[in-house]
Design a binder for these strands. Structure first.
Length: 940
RNA sequence: GCCGAUGUGGCGGAAUUGGUAGACGCGCUGGAUUCAAAAUCCAGUUCCUUCGGGAGUGGGGGUUCGAUUCCCCCCGUCGGUACCA
C-alpha cells in the first residue's frame, strides 16, 4: 500500500469530528494547560502560507502536552469586527455581518485542512452579540471604576462618591484629569446631579474627553497611536491629522507603572518587552514652575529629566496649542504668533515628521522667571514641543540639548555652558553629565549625582518644583466613527453620559441604510431609525475600536456558552490563564498592551485570578514572499509607448528612469532565484493579465527572456505573491506541509517561503511509511528489537522531547529523519520500536501517524496515547569515540572503553601509534581529558 | 539617532553548559534500476592543495589547552521607535 496523503487526511478529519477527539472538558483530574493562538481577523483574502506557522507550532505543543497527560485547552475563534468588512460594505452595500460570515467559513475550512486540534465547540466571534454583550459589560465596569493610587488598584466609583461626600477630594490619591479642581465635601454636596456626573468623569477609567486625536479623513475615524505608523494609518496607509475632538478614552495611564513592573515576571521575548517599556516610556525627572514676569500668580510648569541644567536655561518653549499662549502673547507679537499657530495646525503628521530637522517657531514677547536664579527667560512657541507630552512646555537648555541648541542658534539665543566638561558648544550641544557645574548658583562645583537631589530639595522647599515621574504612554482613544464595531453601551442625558442598564445588554448594533457618516457628519449609527434608549435618550453613536473584543477573549474560550457571566468562576479558576501564547510581534504595543491593561483591571475587580494572563509568549517569525518586479521605462507626458526592459539589459538605456512593476509570481521562471525571468509563455500570461500593457514593447535578452528583479518582502495581494496553503496541501498533504513549515528554521525567525525543498519532507514521509509497508506488504513484526534499534528509538525520544520543550521544531523534524534513515539502514520493522516512534511523531504528522496507529491494531486515537518514556540504559555505550586533538586541532578519533578513567586516557592518548607522527620533534606539555568528550594534547 | 535582533557551504539551517564546525534537508555530480520517465536506492559534495597538509563560522583584536559559543572594537542586514524635554 502506498502512502496516500489525501485519502488518509480526509478520512481522519471526518473521524475526529464525529468522535469529538479534540473536545476539552473543564473538569479533569489531569493538570491543565492552555495553549492560545493570537486571534485572527478573518480577511477576505483568506490564509496564506505564512499564517499557519504559529498555529502549527502551537498545535504541536498542545498535542505534545496532551500526550504528556495534560488536559489541554487549545481554542480558536475570530476577531470579526474590523475595518475591511466595513469598507467592503460601503462599496457593495452588503452588510458586513454577511461578508464576515463568508470569510469566517473560508478561514474555518482552511484551518481544518491543516489538521489542527482545536476544540471547535468553543469557537467565539467578537461580532456575535452573545460575545460583545460581555465586551460592553466590561466597558461598563471600567466606567464604574476609578484608580486609587493609595492602594494601587481600581476601586468602585461608589467608594469615591462616599469619600467625596465625607472629605471632598483633598488628600485623595487617585488618577484623574490634570484639570480636576480641588473640592470640599460641602462643594460636592452643593452640586446637582449633572455637575456631580461631570465631576466624576475626571476619575472614571473610561470617559469622554476633548483631546487631540489622530483623525484619518479617508477612513472617517480616529485612530489610536498604535494604529498610526509613520504618520499614516496602519490599515490602508491613509494620511492622519491632529484634530481636537471629543472621544471616549481609556485611562490606561493609571496602569502605566503596573504594566511596566508586570513585564519583569513575564517569560516573553526580550525585544517585545523592550518595545512595551519604550512605549510606556517612564522617565524620572522633576516638574518645575516658571512664574510669568508680568503675573507671578501664573506659572508655566515644565517637566525635565535634567533639572541639574536649570541654570543653563536661556529660553522657554511652549507647544503652539498650549493654553497660556493666547494669554501671554504681547500685542507686538500677536500677528506673528497667530500666523505660526495657524501654520502649525495645518501641518499633517507626515509633513511634521518629514521636516524634523527644520527649525521653526515664534517669540510671544512674554518672559517668565527662572526660579533658580531669578532671571527673565523669553517664551517662544515651536512645534518641536508636543502638546500631548508632559505639560506641553520645555525649559530650553541649548548647551545640553541638541534641539534646544538648534533653536537657540537659529534665533540667536545665548548658549550657556553649565559643566566644565562640556565641549565644542559652538558646534553642537553636549549632553554630558560628567564634570563639575559652573555658572550654576547653588550647585556650582558639585557633580551630577550631588546636584540633582540638592536642587530638587531646594526647589521643593521653595514650592517651585518637585520630583516627578512622566510617562510617554497616553490614554487610549476608544471611539471609532464607524459602523462595524461594538456599540458603546451608553446614552446621553443633558450632555452627560449614562450607562444603559445591565439588563439591557447587549446593546445590539442597529440596522442602517448606508455605512457612511450622516449628512450632518455624525457616525453611521446616526442613521439608525428610532434608535433611542427607553425611547427618548440618544445613544452614543461611536463604536468601540478593534482592540476591544480582543482584550479579553481568552477567558471566553474557557466558558463560551455562559450567559450569566463573561466567564464562569469555576471555569476561570480551573484554567486560570494562558500557559503558552503564540503570535506575531506586530501586536507588541497594541493588543498585547491593551489586553494586559484590561486583565489588570479585571484582576482588581476580583473577577480573574491572575494579574498577568499570559505568562509565556513566543513570537513566530513572518514567512515572507518573493516579490518579482519587471522594469518599465518611465514615459514622458503624452508618450503612450510603454517599454519593459530585461534586468540584464538596463545598461542599454543609460538615460532612462525605471519604474518597478510587480508581476504575478506564477508567470515567472526560476521564481525566487537571482536569475528569475519571464519566458515567452510568461510574457503572454502577463499581457493577458494586464491588458493595459498588451501593446507594450518588451526588450528581452539574447535568450528571449525578460529578467526580473527579485526581492524578499511581505506576502501580500498587492505583490501578487500570495501562496495559498490549500494548493500546497493538495499536492503534498497537510502532514508534509506542517512538517515542512517547521523544518524551515527556528520558529521565531523570519524566513522567505520557498517550495524548493518541500519534496525532501515529502520523501521523508514516504520512507517513514515504508518502514511499515513496502510493495503492498505489511512489514511490522512483534520480534524483540536489537540493542542498536533501541538506541535509535531512545535517541529520538530524548532529542524530540528536549527540542519540543524548547520550541525547536526544526531539529525535531531532522531527528525523525535521522531515526527513519537509521531504521531503514537496519531494515528494522519491529513494533516495539515503531509504535513509540509513531507517538513521538503524532504531534507533527497528525494524520499519517493516526492511520498507521490504526493499522497496528489500535482502536483509540493515537492523539490520546501516552508520550514514550526515555530509557537511558539504551543510550549507554561500552565504548566512547574520542576525538584526539593536537593543540586544539582534531587529528584522529579513537575508541576507548567507556569505563576508562581520566588518568588512563591521559596516558593512553599520547602513546597511540597514529598520534606518534604528530609528536616528533616536540614535547608533550600537557594532556587535557574531558571524560566522555574529547582529548587534547598540548605540545610545544 | 536610539533600542532590539541577527550574520555559519551554492541554498534553508544544525552544533542546548566553551570540547570532532557544517547534523538534517534542498540543490548539484557520478552510479544502479528502467524501453523511457517519475519514484526509489548507492556514493560524493566548505574552500585551497604540490595529496604531506593548510585555511575556515561578517571583519579586527583578546581570554583559554581549546571559541560559531565568552569579552572589546568595527562592518553589514532585518525589526521597532523617534523633535518624548
Amino acid at each position: 500500500m502506498e502512502y496516500q496523503a489525501r485519502e488518509i487526511e480526509q478520512k481522519w478529519r471526518k473521524n475526529w469530528e464525529t468522535q469529538g477527539t479534540y473536545q476539552v472538558s473543564n473538569k479533569s483530574d489531569r493538570p491543565k494547560y492552555y495553549v492560545l493562538d493570537m486571534f485572527p481577523y478573518p480577511s477576505g483574502a483568506g490564509l496564506h502560507v505564512g499564517h499557519p506557522l504559529g498555529y502549527i507550532a502551537s498545535d504541536i505543543f498542545a498535542r505534545y502536552k496532551r500526550l504528556q497527560g495534560f488536559n489541554v485547552l487549545h481554542p480558536m475563534g475570530y476577531d470579526s469586527f474590523g475595518l475591511p468588512a466595513e469598507q467592503y460594505a460601503i462599496q457593495t452595500g452588503i452588510h458586513p455581518a454577511i461578508a464576515t460570515e463568508e470569510n469566517i467559513n473560508r478561514y474555518r475550512q482552511q484551518l481544518e485542512n491543516l489538521g489542527f486540534s482545536f476544540d471547535w465547540s468553543r469557537e467565539v466571534r467578537t461580532s456575535d452579540p452573545s460575545y460583545y454583550r460581555w465586551t460592553q459589560w466590561i466597558f461598563q465596569q471600567l466606567f464604574k471604576s476609578y484608580f486609587d493610587q493609595h492602594v494601587g488598584q481600581a476601586l468602585p466609583i461608589a467608594d469615591l462618591v462616599a469619600r467625596l461626600e465625607k472629605n471632598g477630594n483633598a488628600g485623595l490619591q487617585a488618577v484623574c484629569d490634570e484639570a480636576t479642581p480641588t473640592i470640599s465635601a460641602a462643594d460636592w454636596t452643593a452640586m446637582d446631579e449633572r455637575a456631580r456626573e461631570l465631576f466624576l468623569l475626571n476619575y472614571r477609567l473610561t470617559f469622554p474627553e476633548e483631546s487631540y486625536v489622530n483623525w484619518c479623513p479617508a477612513l472617517g475615524t480616529v485612530l489610536s497611536n498604535d494604529e498610526v505608523k509613520d504618520g499614516v494609518s496602519e490599515r490602508g496607509g491613509y494620511p492622519v491629522e491632529r484634530k481636537l475632538m471629543a472621544q471616549w478614552s481609556m485611562r490606561i495611564t493609571a496602569y502605566a507603572d503596573r504594566l511596566l513592573e508586570g513585564l519583569d515576571q513575564l517569560d516573553w521575548p526580550h525585544s517585545l518587552k523592550e518595545q512595551q517599556r519604550n512605549w510606556i516610556g517612564r522617565s524620572q525627572g522633576a516638574s518645575v514652575k516658571f512664574p510669568l514676569v508680568k503675573d507671578a500668580q501664573r506659572q508655566i510648569e515644565v517637566f525635565t529629566t535634567r533639572v541639574d541644567t536649570i541654570y543653563g536655561v536661556s529660553f522657554m518653549v511652549l507647544a503652539p496649542e498650549h493654553e497660556l499662549v493666547d494669554l501671554i502673547t504681547t500685542a507686538a507679537h500677536r500677528a506673528e504668533v497667530d500666523e505660526y499657530r495657524t501654520w502649525a495646525a495645518s501641518r499633517s503628521e507626515v509633513e511634521r515628521m518629514a521636516e524634523v530637522k527644520r527649525v521653526t517657531g515664534a517669540f510671544t514677547g512674554a518672559y517668565c522667571v527662572n526660579p533658580a536664579n531669578g532671571e527673565a527667560v523669553p517664551i517662544y512657541i515651536a512645534d518641536y514641543v508636543l502638546a500631548g507630552y508632559g505639560t506641553g512646555a520645555v525649559m530650553a537648555v541649548p548647551s545640553g540639548d541638541q534641539r534646544d541648541w538648534n533653536f537657540a542658534t537659529h534665533f540667536g539665543l545665548p548658549i550657556i555652558p553649565i559643566l566644565d566638561a562640556q565641549q565644542n558648544l559652538s558646534q553642537e550641544a553636549d549632553a554630558t553629565k560628567e564634570g563639575r557645574y559652573i555658572n550654576s548658583g547653588i550647585i556650582n562645583g558639585l557633580n551630577y549625582e550631588e546636584a540633582v537631589p540638592t536642587l530638587t530639595a531646594w526647589l521643593e522647599e521653595k514650592g517651585m518644583g518637585k520630583g516627578k515621574i512622566q510617562y510617554r504612554l497616553r490614554n487610549a482613544v476608544f471611539s471609532r466613527q464607524r459602523y462595524w464595531g461594538e456599540p458603546v453601551p451608553v446614552y446621553w442625558k443633558d450632555d452627560v453620559p449614562y450607562l444603559i442598564a445591565e439588563s439591557d445588554l447587549p446593546l445590539v448594533l442597529p440596522a442602517v441604510d448606508k455605512y457612511l457618516p450622516t449628512e450632518t457628519g455624525e457616525p453611521p449609527l446616526g442613521r439608525a431609525e428610532n434608535w433611542k434608549y427607553q425611547g427618548k435618550y440618544d445613544y452614543e453613536l461611536s463604536t468601540m475600536p478593534g482592540w476591544a473584543g480582543s482584550s479579553w477573549y481568552w477567558y471566553r474560550y474557557m466558558d463560551p456558552q455562559n450567559s450569566d457571566r463573561f466567564v464562569g468562576e469555576e471555569a476561570v479558576n480551573y484554567w486560570q490563564g494562558v500557559d503558552l501564547y503564540i503570535g506575531g510581534s506586530e501586536h507588541a504595543v497594541g493588543h498585547l498592551l491593551y489586553s494586559r491593561f484590561w486583565n489588570h483591571f479585571l484582576y482588581d475587580l476580583g473577577l480573574v485570578p491572575q494579574q498577568e494572563y499570559a505568562t509565556r509568549l513566543i513570537n513566530q517569525g513572518m514567512i515572507q514572499g518573493v516579490i518579482e518586479y519587471i522594469h518599465l521605462i518611465k514615459a514622458e507626458e503624452g508618450d503612450l509607448t510603454r517599454t519593459f526592459v530585461s534586468a540584464d539589459k538596463l545598461g542599454d538605456f543609460p538615460q532612462a528612469e525605471f519604474a518597478l512593476i510587480p508581476v504575478h509570481v506564477d508567470f515567472v521562471q526560476d521564481y525566487g532565484k537571482e536569475e528569475s525571468y519571464l519566458d515567452a509563455a510568461g510574457l503572454a500570461q502577463f499581457k493577458t493579465w494586464r491588458p493595459d500593457y498588451a501593446t507594450a514593447n518588451f526588450v528581452t535578452n539574447a535568450a528571449g527572456q525578460l529578467v526580473t528583479k527579485s526581492e524578499v518582502g511581505k506576502m501580500s495581494k498587492r505583490y501578487f505573491n500570495v501562496v495559498n496553503p490549500d494548493d500546497v496541501i493538495a499536492r503534498y498533504g497537510a502532514d508534509a506541509f506542517r512538517m515542512y513549515e517547521m523544518f524551515l528554521g527556528p520558529l521565531e525567525q523570519a524566513k522567505p517561503w520557498n517550495t524548493n525543498s518541500i519534496n525532501g519532507v515529502s520523501r521523508f514521509l514516504n520512507s517513514f511509511w515504508r518502514l511499515f509497508y513496502q510493495n503492498e506488504q505489511w512489514l511490522v513484526t512483534d520480534e524483540a528489537p536489537a540493542r542498536e534499534e533501541q538506541k535509535v528509538l531512545h535517541t529520538a525520544i530524548k532529542k524530540v522531547t528536549e527540542d519540543v520543550e524548547r520550541f525547536s521544531f526544526n531539529t525535531c523534524v531532522s531527528a525523525f529523519m535521522v531515526a527513519t534513515n537509521e531504521l531503514g539502514r537496519l531494515k528494522s520493522h519491529k513494533r516495539a520500536v515503531l509504535e513509540p516512534l509513531l507517538v513521538l511523531m503524532a504531534p507533527f504528522a497528525v494524520h499519517l501517524t493516526e492511520e498507521l496507529w490504526e493499522k497496528l491494531g489500535h482502536t483509540t486515537s493515537i492523539h490520546h496515547a501516552a508520550w514514550p518514556t526515555l530509557e537511558e540504559q539504551w543510550l549507554v555505550e561500552d565504548h566512547i569515540t574520542y576525538p584526539i586533538a593536537i593543540n586544539g586541532k582534531t587529528r584522529i578519533t579513537v575508541d576507548f572503553p567507556a569505563a576508562s578513567t581520566k588518568t588512563e586516557l591521559e596516558k593512553a592518548a599520547p602513546a597511540l601509534e597514529d598520534i606518534q607522527k604528530y609528536l616528533e620533534g616536540v614535547t608533550v606539555r600537557k594532556v587535557i581529558v574531558v571524560p566522555g568528550r574529547m582529548i587534547n594534547i598540548v605540545v610545544g
